[in-house]
Design a protein around this nucleic acid. Structure first.
Lengths: 262, 262
DNA sequence: GCCCCAAACAACGA
DNA sequence: CTCGTTGTTTGGGG
């Protein structure tokens, strides 16, 4: 549910909450959501202080000062909580909790148990769309390589670039005036370049919006400001009718102002 | 171009022409169309008499009395010729020629060079649709296994059953009153059984038609008698309009009397 | 009209 | 709204 901009805000806020604090205890409630033994992760971070909290792609990373790290992918319905130990008891569907030396816990819950926690995950070599490795060159090269893919599927493919989810794909393509059904290779280079810029600008602008609306958020999602991928809207601010359709197997919102290249 | 019924007639006719004759010489003009060394095949059959000529799936097989065999798949445009050695010179795009002790040659030509010749090919374990291994049981079991495939794609899949090509798939489905777009698993069992019978009957009937029209044929194709897959027809004999459309990536002829199960 | 491969797509489950 | 797996379809090339 949360997408890249939400996750960026989460990570900044969580960092403010737990930076420098030492891990007292780690409890794993749902071992199948973790890619290692309960003991491995628990003893691997116990007694160590949080040295950083970051977001990359659709994952949140907790770094510890002994060099170990934990990656959290919330999938569709995972949630993070920062709460006291008494509050922990009232949370349903717990997956894992890390309690710090001040008694507070960072808890992950997921009613579907789809979320994924990775201990000391390998660094991915696929660029996060807001990272400096995600260059225009890289984008154009991949657009050439996957020229027959529909542009929406292209943006969503986490093996090509990491971070864009279904909702922001629609926002980006609407802003770039490109139809989600367009065939990647048929989009003129100038519009591909525009699209590249639009990816970064839409996401950065959205991070700003979220911080304004919900500065403390570490859970849920904030989408009031979305301009097309928004079930509450029938028209854009320019009075264009918003269409809803399944494209590339995903619920897609778009307007007729978006050019269909094919 | 030729499909199973044509190939059956070819093989019978070729058998009449070459049975018992000894191979004098084999010339390979296009080595890339053969799955072994020129020498292997040439020396493997030299001096040996033809003991049988058969057709199975879309391939023709020449058997020799030392146990060796040659399989010929004509693909789209391969042709067979039975001619004198002086006539051989005038044939274009030769692939391979076998000259017998009476001076006649069985020649294979192909202007696209797509045809495939296999020396001592492994026996396939996928049943030819006219063989006794192609039982109703087998057909129904495969229909269950591939229940999501479109029925036309199912009939054409040479990994499931061997022999049906694009034209006869249309004839069979029309006769069985099943739309080519139908999803295999959605076709009621009774109609699946009907279809199984129809496969055999349409092909056997067509073999009879071809023999009547062109009793000597060892090349080309005979399709005058086709009732739907026939570009010369706009209507079937029952005055039903014939539609043409690409289905399962193939040019498909069908009518509205064919029920669409989905 | 043929077959193969690779890529894209759809359905399902976790 | 997410990802991985599996099976099916599609498109290009020989």
């Amino acid at each position: 549910m949360p997408e890249l901009p939400d996750l960026r805000v989460y990570s900044e806020n969580i960092k403010k909450l737990v930076f420098g604090k030492k891990v007292k205890e780690t409890i794993v409630y749902s071992p199948k959501n973790i890619d290692c033994d309960i003991d491995t992760i628990a003893s691997g971070i116990r007694g160590n202080a949080v040295s950083d909290v970051t977001a990359e792609g659709k994952e949140i990373f907790l770094m510890f000062d002994n060099g170990n790290s934990v990656g959290v992918h919330l999938m569709l319905n995972g949630k993070m909580h920062y709460i006291t130990s008494t509050e922990v008891n009232s949370i349903q569907n717990k997956v894992m909790g890390i309690t710090f030396d001040d008694g507070y816990s960072l808890l992950i819950s997921d009613f579907q148990k789809f979320c994924k926690i990775r201990y000391n995950p390998d660094k991915s070599d696929i660029p996060d769309v807001l990272s400096s490795e995600f260059t225009l060159d890289y984008f154009l090269k991949k657009a050439e390589q996957f020229k027959r893919k529909k542009i929406k599927a292209f943006l969503l493919d986490q093996k090509i670039m990491r971070g864009i989810g279904n909702a922001y794909a629609d926002e980006i393509l609407w802003k770039a005036k490109i139809s989600p059904k367009s065939v990647t290779g048929k989009i003129p280079k100038i519009n591909q370049e525009m699209l590249y810029i639009t990816i970064k600008s839409v996401l950065l602008w959205s991070i700003g919006q979220i911080k304004k609306i919900n500065p403390e958020m570490i859970s849920g999602e904030e989408r009031k400001f979305m301009q097309v991928h928004n079930p509450r809207l029938k028209f854009t601010k320019d009075k264009e009718r918003i269409h809803v359709e399944t494209i590339s197997s995903k619920r897609t919102y778009y307007t007729d102002s978006q050019v269909h290249y094919y």
